[in-house]
Amino acid sequence: MSIWEILAIFAAGVGAGTINTIVGSGTLITFPVLLATGLPPVTATVSNALGLIPGSISGAIGYRRELAGQRRRVLKLGVGAAIGGLTGATLLLALPPTAFETVVPVLVALALVLVILQPRISRAVQHRRERNGTRPRPDGGPALYTGLALASVYGGYFTAAQGIIYLSLMGMLLDDTMQRLNAVKNVLAAVVNSVAALFFLFVADFDWTAVALIAVGSAIGGQIGAKVGRRLSPAFLRAFVVVVGTAAIVQLLLR
């Protein structure tokens, strides 16, 4: 691996850690760079998943203030995320590489539509609750648990844009601020990446140099992303999600 490849992977790690903490889709930065260095697709995917763990943890720590009072919610949703992540990691090694990639753009596009419509949907849900005299469930109920578990299956398989899917689901089913939901998203991403990585350590090939470079870069990026992300207004954060998600769809379709 040349010095330029080393610098490119490290820089991609910083960018991915930053983007993942703010919204998600950082894998769309690191994955193409790893492929460009000559790594096979599955090896690149596994190396990427291992390397992004420190970035996910760093981002979650950076958002620790917004996590206050969400312990029960995080623990409950984290169980589903862990199960989904392990399932996705298993499928990565069991299925052809194109199996999930054919539906990824559709999933991301659907998530973006939900993000755009989230304020209107939330208002409609709130009005319905007021008419019926009901209160929102603090954990989102079975619908959110199931949706996040399925999104985590995809996250354990490829990870790209899983944060966007998380935010769209939580934005519809939880009555909370975007910043607090983003904090939960970072924890769930850390859970999925960690579970998948532990599985990969024993059964898959990976490149330790690439893993180390992305790990250091993403940890730095996680702190940058937390500082930048919490300063964004809900409207700007939602717009940023849409921009990044659209770029993700374009890149996935052109791959």
Rank of each mutant, 00 (worst) to 15 (best):
I9M: 10
A11G: 03
G13N: 03
G15I: 02
G15Y: 08
T18G: 00
I19L: 15
N20F: 01
I22L: 14
G24I: 07
S25W: 09
G26N: 06
L28F: 12
F31N: 06
F31Y: 15
T37W: 02
T37Q: 13
P40R: 14
L52I: 12
I53T: 12
G55Q: 07
S58E: 12
S58T: 04
G59E: 07
Y63P: 03
R64Q: 14
E66F: 11
E66K: 11
E66R: 12
L75R: 14
G80K: 00
G84L: 09
G84A: 09
A89Y: 00
T90W: 10
L91S: 06
L93N: 11
L95H: 04
P96H: 11
P96Q: 14
T102M: 13
T102F: 03
P105H: 14
V106I: 15
A111E: 10
A111C: 08
L114N: 05
P119C: 02
P119H: 04
R120T: 08
I121F: 10
I121H: 00
S122H: 13
V125H: 00
N132F: 06
G140H: 11
G141S: 07
A143C: 04
A143E: 03
Y145F: 15
G147M: 10
G147T: 12
L150Y: 02
S152N: 07
V153K: 04
G155E: 04
Y166S: 03
L167T: 07
M170L: 13
L174I: 15
Q179F: 00
N182V: 10
A183L: 11
V187N: 10
A190T: 07
V192S: 05
F199V: 03
F199D: 06
F200N: 03
A204S: 09
A204R: 09
D207R: 10
D207T: 00
D207V: 02
A212I: 08
G217Q: 07
I220T: 10
G222D: 12
Q223P: 02
G225T: 12
A226D: 11
R230Q: 15
L232S: 10
S233N: 09
P234Y: 00
L237D: 11
L237T: 11
R238E: 03
V242T: 04
T246N: 00
L252F: 08
